[in-house]
Nucleic acid binder design. Structure first.
Lengths: 217, 217
DNA sequence: GATTTATGAATGAAGG
DNA sequence: CCTTCATTCATAAATC
């Protein structure tokens, strides 16, 4: 891959990164001194280096990306420019900063509900398009929004019915485990350490004995 | 750094990380101010989040190792709650009693993305096997998982291409967000190659100099 | 304004 | 391959 050939010139970056790793100001832990000590064998270090190279690439590209955009913001069109600078957008009661997730306007919601109850059990693609077209008259919306809405709506309805019957005696009773190297399946315990990662993802560590000699990533 | 305020919202963690990314003291670039403004769309942010998760894994493992080494006399006490608290774990265990669906580890995801972008558009049966073999080194995975992943990945990519600029009409003219996270706005053109590392061309960012830095995300 | 809830969105898997 | 479903995640909105 590309990053492999960039590897060499990034070794220093990696070291820098490692420095950050071992000095996470946000409190990942490790509050003692002696941070720069080598805690791995050369072989392990090499493996780690390769892994980190990926990150180094990301880092570099992030910067590149930033520069590129700063330089050619006009290329992406004014889509960014005329974003939500408009203070008059009070229509529909949306917030100006509602930029993350679509929220149906009351009118839209009403229409959606009506269609849903109409029993058109299967909102096929064509239907979705139509609905979207219509709802668009009442506020920003996309087909995906409509699609998702129906999906969620149905799932919700369905689940509502099974919930009350749920508390029979755990016939299945599977208090057991998370996945072997549980990723996000594990319910968030007390994250005593800082989660410097998206939910830390509960990475897979080796077996508890943690022989340093054999981690294979 | 007021955003250091603990909120368990991973976006903030991302910001922290991005802050580091954009402040590589070794001079990778970007010497201006306004460092932690949002420069990506949410979708892109999500992509980056995954990437960072890989790094986070390394990070945490490094910290763990460091702690383990510097406190070797108490290896057995290293069992922090959030780490490997599962007794059933076996390092390459293929046995998963979970009825929960597979979730790729950050590392796996990265590898998959890389392979995906590599262009082998059709992961044939044999290829699947190979990939599975390799990914197994990084976590529990099956061929079906791999197969499904590729199928979904492809379908998803394809769908993203159609961005019906249908929101014309707009009688109410809701000057809201251009893309309420509708997942289709990403210009996934020909150069959508490097997915494992977000590249500039995939990212239309917002410039810090644009003035409307009133993000509140 | 911190916590909880409701719900839009993402995604692994199944069906066809 | 394409569509659909089930589950989970993230966050706007509601609540305290």
């Amino acid at each position: 891959m590309e990053w492999q050939q960039q590897q060499q010139q990034q070794i220093q970056n990696q070291q820098q990164i490692i420095h950050h790793l071992q000095n996470p100001e946000d409190g990942i832990g490790n509050g003692n001194g002696g941070l720069y000590v080598k805690v791995m064998t050369d072989e392990q270090m090499e493996l780690l280096r390769r892994q980190i190279a990926v990150y180094a690439t990301i880092c570099e590209q992030l910067v590149e990306m930033h520069k590129a955009v700063t330089a050619q913001q006009d290329l992406t069109g004014m889509r960014l420019g005329n974003f939500y600078c408009d203070p008059f957008m009070a229509s529909g009661g949306h917030k100006i900063t509602a930029r993350q997730r679509w929220t149906p306007t009351p009118v839209q919601l009403q229409m959606l509900e009506r269609i849903f109850e109409e029993g058109t059990g299967t909102p096929c693609k064509q239907k979705i398009k139509e609905i979207t077209m219509e709802l668009t008259q009442h506020g920003q919306i996309s087909e995906t929004n409509v699609y998702n809405w129906f999906q969620n709506r149905r799932a919700r309805s369905k689940r509502k019915q099974s919930v009350p019957a749920q508390n029979n005696g755990e016939s299945e009773a599977e208090p057991e485990v998370e996945s072997p190297r549980d990723e996000k399946t594990k319910p968030e315990d007390i994250m005593s350490l800082d989660n410097s990662a998206p939910r830390a993802e509960n990475m897979y560590l080796q077996s508890p004995e943690l022989g340093f000699g054999n981690f294979d990533w």
